[in-house]
Nucleic acid binder design. Sequence first.
DNA 1: GCAAAAGTGTTTAGAGTACACCCATGC
DNA 2: GCATGGGTGTACTCTAAACACTTTTGC
Lengths: 216, 216
Amino acid sequence: MLAGVLRIRDRALQALLWQRARPPHTHRWSLPGGRLGPGETVERSIRRQLAEKVDVRELTHVEQLSVFSAPERVPGKRVVATAFLGLIPCDADPTLPEDTAWHPVESLPATAFDHEEILLTARERLRAKLSYTNIGFALAPPRFTVAELRDIYSAALGYRVSATNLQRVLSRRGALEATGETVSSGPSGGRPPALFRFTSRDLQITDAFAVLRPPS
Amino acid sequence: MLAGVLRIRDRALQALLWQRARPPHTHRWSLPGGRLGPGETVERSIRRQLAEKVDVRELTHVEQLSVFSAPERVPGKRVVATAFLGLIPCDADPTLPEDTAWHPVESLPATAFDHEEILLTARERLRAKLSYTNIGFALAPPRFTVAELRDIYSAALGYRVSATNLQRVLSRRGALEATGETVSSGPSGGRPPALFRFTSRDLQITDAFAVLRPPS
DNA sequence: GCAAAAGTGTTTAGAGTACACCCATGC
DNA sequence: GCATGGGTGTACTCTAAACACTTTTGC
């Protein structure tokens, strides 16, 4: 069981990795994970594994990706991995163990086994769900300006997103609401931005039927 | 490893189930599946398992659903199941083993363990992908009239689909094309329908970005 | 006043649905 | 001819992207 844990920092999508001290693949970087214990579901187990790396309360979203089972994915005895996507908001800053660090997904270090493939799967899942769900709540702080949210979406999607349209799409779908508060503007001036929040902090599909909708 | 194998027949979505002869859950109906063998991926393994029930060449699509791992999902020793969705076109009619039969998903018999939950997960995955992929190819025969395709989509989705709009949506997306052939009309008359086919028989996402598209 | 950033108004484009209408056949 | 089912033309709606414009601040 492995998890691609992602967050946004410095306008980049980062992944949580730990450096292997022992063979196989010594010094390469691995996804956090562990073995399924008795009496726990895979979801509960992966949260338990991740608790050794980050504060679990900061894990705002966890979901299954898929099973990776290529016979040669790790040397030696056959190991099947159930992979997960985990998300952490950008305001969280968990203290990490010595061997653990964040790495931009765009410029990964040498990774162990098939962990890069798993990370790319995690990134694609996140990108897809940004489009038709409210999953942005899992990357954003509790309150934020539209400009901050635009930077989060831009970093996750890998292209520039328009703040204007982002606000309108999420608002129309009922995923975003203004708190009524504003923040003072920065040193270079400008109108003070309003603070927004996600209306729900549970995953919701906001654009269920792309086509072939049931008759209204 | 378990598979929810679905097909359309008699305007209904049907699932492949086999009746248990021995405990636990004697006489209840189970999903086909088996254990992962050494040196095979889970995808290859589930195809091998299903080969005992149906002709594998008729399996037009197989994909992972998720891992079901509730500790009490089966009595006795803890068993984790990787679940799959399998699809069979409606013109295929494989000869089945004695203990195996098709059952409408709308009126399932008594099922074993959590197999009904897995089947409903399979149905939801199919319904979602009908909306944004060309997955209909896996349920339809090689050539078909739009009316036949409308019945397939209607049965799978559980509501009446318009033949007019179905043809237009799939055509505009480049998933559907006319073969140029026509069939003679039925005994009650009517214009002879044209035969269509899917342009690809591999899964393709036809409506990738619902929103927040990259700039064009 | 002026630059900067936030936020709103408005136009445009495209997809999808609904529905009227035409087409080709059996009887 | 007429019913029947297939297929096309077209209008309407809705979403979202693009962009101009207004608002509100710092300096």
